[in-house]
Amino acid sequence: MPPPRAENPPSLDPTEDSDINAAAQDLTRPALPRQPRAQGELVLSARLRGGQSRIGALRQQGSLKALFPHGSGAALKAVFLNTGGGVTGGDRFSLRAEAEPGASLTLTSQAAERIYRAQPGEVGRVATRLAAGAGATLHWLPQETIVFEGAALERRIDAELDETASFLAVEPLIFGRAAMNERVHDARLEDRWRIRRGGELVFADTLRMDGDIDALLCRPGVADGARAMASLLLVRPHAGDMAAPLRAAIGPQGACSEIRPGVLFARILAEDGFALRRSLIPAIRLLAGGDIPRPWML
């Protein structure tokens, strides 16, 4: 007598079978090799000595360095540079700078910063902490940040200002290079500003873009096709007096407003980096009360 036949097992859901196969493939697929990541830290202060602003403190390590070009004027001028050549997922950079009471400090970058493609799940992070004491002047004037396809960046700027200090900040952004016909269809960017004056939060702004940035910029209510933009912030007593001259300097491609007493904010849009500079450089000259840092002219 033949042995009884086993009943056929219940059929598997085809989608479930597919999931099992995919999971098995994931177990056998080699993980992406972890690439070396850049790290850098820069700590700098400007101190008033004999009527001139000099280096008070300086510490630099990793891929973040500072140069101090000679020049006229009472302000300490510092040029920071990323020797890693750009920022990609997993990179970590920290910059802290202070203009001590009565001192004047101007910071700029050696060149445009480039944000390159990141591996899945990895994000580059840049943290900037600024401070200005009583009667101090602090200018944060980095050149453009260029965001490339596949980039992932989280960046934050925190500033603590005395009520009598003067603070000027600019952050230009370019999404792909127009001359290379580049478009950014998959990237992630978060730019977070928090500015306190006399211990009180006086300015907060978060710009967050994720996914098809080019499509987002094409929306009329966002950038109407512009692929370059800049944010400018002036915090000082009577900053609102500069509103009308600033509107004239940036023209129809931008707008500004005194959002509260002593806090003037502007945003400029442009089709590309060259057009952005034509509006931005006169605006910086106006608000800084002098010429722009020399690296901008290279």
Results as ranks from 00 to 15, higher is better:
286 L>I: 06
70 H>K: 15
41 E>Y: 06
253 Q>H: 13
92 R>T: 05
184 V>K: 08
207 L>S: 04
161 L>K: 08
145 T>M: 05
46 A>E: 04
61 Q>K: 12
177 R>C: 11
84 G>N: 07
227 R>G: 03
31 A>W: 10
53 S>G: 12
31 A>T: 11
147 V>D: 02
98 E>F: 09
198 G>L: 11
206 T>P: 02
24 A>Y: 02
154 E>A: 15
186 D>W: 02
266 A>D: 06
211 G>P: 04
133 G>H: 04
39 Q>C: 07
110 Q>V: 04
48 L>K: 04
293 P>D: 02
254 G>L: 08
209 M>K: 00
133 G>S: 13
269 L>Y: 10
235 V>A: 12
63 S>A: 15
8 N>C: 12
109 S>W: 02
86 G>E: 11
118 A>E: 03
88 T>H: 07
287 L>C: 09
271 E>S: 11
88 T>R: 11
159 A>P: 01
51 G>I: 03
192 R>D: 14
30 P>E: 08
84 G>H: 04
256 C>G: 14
133 G>E: 03
5 R>Q: 13
62 G>A: 14
197 R>T: 00
117 R>N: 15
95 L>S: 04
190 E>W: 03
78 A>N: 10
24 A>H: 06
241 D>H: 11
222 V>S: 01
38 A>F: 09
41 E>L: 13
12 L>Q: 10
78 A>Q: 08
261 P>T: 11
286 L>A: 06
171 E>S: 06
30 P>M: 07
190 E>D: 13
269 L>W: 12
12 L>E: 13
129 R>M: 07
114 R>E: 00
168 L>H: 09
57 A>N: 11
15 T>G: 08
8 N>W: 13
174 I>C: 12
282 P>H: 14
195 I>F: 00
247 R>Y: 05
155 R>D: 09
